[in-house]
Design a protein around this nucleic acid. Structure first.
Lengths: 126, 126
DNA sequence: TCGCTGTACCAATCATAATAGTACAGTTAT
DNA sequence: ATAACTGTACTATTATGATTGGTACAGCGA
C-alpha cells in the first residue's frame, strides 16, 4: 500500500487517486481485485471517509475502478481506462517538459536527466 | 511580455514569477534591464499591486531580480541565480518524470515524447 | 434482522490566493 | 522644497478549495 504525505501540499484525495493508479501500473493490483472499503481506508490513513469517497468517485468516473453498493470497490479490468490514464500522463508530462523548457532546461539535458534516473534505479534502488 | 491565464488555477503571482524567469531564459530580458513598476504591471494585468509586489519579492529572494527603493526593479546579472533556477527546474522536472513513471509511462516513451515535441517545434512553431 | 458496503448530502473549518486600502521610505526632476 | 514616481510594509477582507464532521439512505450477504 502507498503512503500519504500530509505536508506536501498535494490534496489528500489526489494522493489516494494516484496511489491506486500507481498500484495498478505496477501490477500490484489487477483487474477484479477488491479495494479497501471507504471507511477502512479512511481509518487506516486517519482521514475523513468523505475524502476517500471523493477519491473513489474520481477513480470510478475515470473507469479505473468500479463500485457496487453493499459489496465494495474493485479494480476495473477495462483496458480503455488504463489507456486513458496513459494518455493523461503523456499530456501532463508534456506540460512539465514545456515548463522546464521555459525555465531554461534544454531538450538534451532533459533526456540526460531521464537516462541518469533510470540507470541509478538499476544500480542501487531498494 | 507574457500573458496571464486567470482560469488556469495557477496562482497569479506564480505566473508572473515564471513569466519573468522565462523572459530571462529566452534572453528577452538581460541583466540590468528594468522591469515594469509594481503599479504599472498591476494596472496592465488588471490585478492588485500587492499581487505583483509578492511576485517581485519572490524573484528578489531568489536573486533573479534586485529592487531599489525609489528607482525600480531590475534583472540581476548574477549567474548564481540563473543556476539556482536551472537546478530547481531539474528537480521539478525529475519529480514530473517520477510521477509519469508512476502512472505507467516508461523512460523510452518519455524520451520519444520530448524528441517529438522538439521536432514539431522546429517545423511549425512561430 | 444485523452488519457491512457505497453514496449523498450539508454545514463548519482551515488554508491560501487575491483584493482593498493606507502608509512610509527612497529617488528623480522641476 | 515640492511633486511624482519608485519599492515596501502592514492590516483587514473576500473568495475559493480542501478537508472535516455528522447524518442519512440504499444495496448486499450471512
Amino acid at each position: 500500500m502507498f503512503q500519504l504525505d500530509f505536508k506536501s501540499g498535494v490534496p489528500i484525495c489526489d494522493q489516494i487517486v494516484n496511489g491506486f493508479i500507481k498500484l495498478k501500473a505496477l501490477g500490484v493490483l489487477k483487474g477484479g481485485d477488491q479495494l479497501p472499503s471507504v471507511r477502512a481506508l479512511a481509518s487506516k490513513f486517519s482521514v475523513n471517509p468523505n475524502t476517500v469517497q471523493k477519491s473513489y468517485a474520481i477513480l470510478e468516473n475515470s473507469g479505473i475502478i468500479y463500485s457496487v453498493k453493499g459489496k465494495g470497490s474493485f479494480m476495473s479490468d477495462d483496458e480503455t481506462a488504463a489507456n486513458a490514464v496513459l494518455e493523461s500522463a503523456r499530456l501532463e508530462f508534456m506540460a512539465a517538459v514545456r515548463h522546464a523548457n521555459d525555465l531554461g532546461l534544454d531538450v538534451d539535458e532533459m533526456i540526460n536527466l531521464i537516462k541518469q534516473n533510470s540507470t541509478t534505479k538499476e544500480d542501487g534502488d531498494k
